[in-house]
Design a protein around this nucleic acid. Sequence first.
DNA 1: CACAAACCTGAGACCTGATTCAGGTAACGG
DNA 2: CCGTTACCTGAATCAGGTCTCAGGTTTGTG
Lengths: 230, 230
Amino acid sequence: MTTSDFSELERRADPMSPHAPSRTKRGQATQRKLLEAAEEVFAELGYHEASIVKITERAGIGLGTFYLYFDSKQTIFEALVIDLNRRVRRSMAEAMEGASSRLEAERAGFAGFFRFTAEHPALYRVVREAELVSPEALHLHYSRIVAGYVEGLRRAQVAGEVSDIDPEVAAWALMGIGELVGARYILWERDAHGRRPEQIDPHVLDHMMRFIETALAPRPTGAPTPEDPS
Amino acid sequence: MTTSDFSELERRADPMSPHAPSRTKRGQATQRKLLEAAEEVFAELGYHEASIVKITERAGIGLGTFYLYFDSKQTIFEALVIDLNRRVRRSMAEAMEGASSRLEAERAGFAGFFRFTAEHPALYRVVREAELVSPEALHLHYSRIVAGYVEGLRRAQVAGEVSDIDPEVAAWALMGIGELVGARYILWERDAHGRRPEQIDPHVLDHMMRFIETALAPRPTGAPTPEDPS
DNA sequence: CACAAACCTGAGACCTGATTCAGGTAACGG
DNA sequence: CCGTTACCTGAATCAGGTCTCAGGTTTGTG
């Protein structure tokens, strides 16, 4: 199922396609500036308070130029979701590189996710609004992350490192945990000076990982059956 | 921390306070019609596509009347979050009534949550947008649910039914799971006719509960727990 | 240093939607 | 069936957005 086809969305959100400047360095720089400005503006103001004018101003670019690169506000929003999604997955993958056990990898992956969250609050806010602004983009975002999890869980199950729980259900549960814990303990947390922490509280990460590890741990063989004794 | 003061928000979102019709049945009915219409319109269109005109039209009420009951679009949105929050907690509490074990209660609570989600997609969508439209309202929503969880977990820990994990971290994790699993398997799920399921897939609920139960289970401290009922 | 080609620009035409206000309409005790 | 209170109404005002277009500016090349 998670194999939905997002090619149409990606085509639409790809600034290179219908419009076509950016054959030169200069054009590509402009496009990048627009995406970066959009990330900031959407993160600060949200979709409906953001405006093309504000984005182009922040990018230091003329209003008209915007339309050489994107069809509309919706389009740049979708492009941003796709871009952030790519980057957060890269961040997680890099963090997991070189982990030797599943457990270690899991923890590293979450650490990577939280680091990205702290550095790019836009991910969170943009994804939240995507529910209504562009459900397609939202599904793409979640599906791609879940796909990665499912694959990892499957492998770990084969290796006997994870119980025989449905990997897809587990993957969505894990994402839910990461999302809300990240929101609560990074984005909404403030120190005495009203500043956001740059890292998640280690105590929180520990307890969260313990929760997850326990949940996924393989059952001792010969243990009672999964059926509840009602 | 969860002890934040939301009284200012509630005062603002309370339609009875600065404006003050609705001393009679008639006025109260009008106000209820507005909230119901807002729930539908916000759920369908999202905050920025919704408009006062659309809300009053749906409510079958004159445009000007809106301002006798709410200050602004933002105010009715906040009132709606508070209202939905109250109702979903009631729904969960009712579902849990009469459960004998913690495990049973947990499952019932989630079932209540999922039932409410299926019947009132507005909860989900409104809460998602609240991140940017009204962070205060969002925090109120989550804090109140988490507070309930924390209390339940604490009691269960005292009774030895739950491990000594930090109850607050666990509570946010549980909410995250419920939220994303609910979104994925109720709101985004479609049958052959493109219809949303009215209930969550039992298979999914089973695996999700297994995940949660395992995560929270008290650690076998040397000897097996004196549990094993039936 | 011309001359394309590739980019950039922002005033203004055109919308959309929140909010006000001057003037109704319904409800009900007496 | 009148008076008073409690509600209701939508045209008009106004702030702010999107998107177009006729005309610059910059870059690269012979």
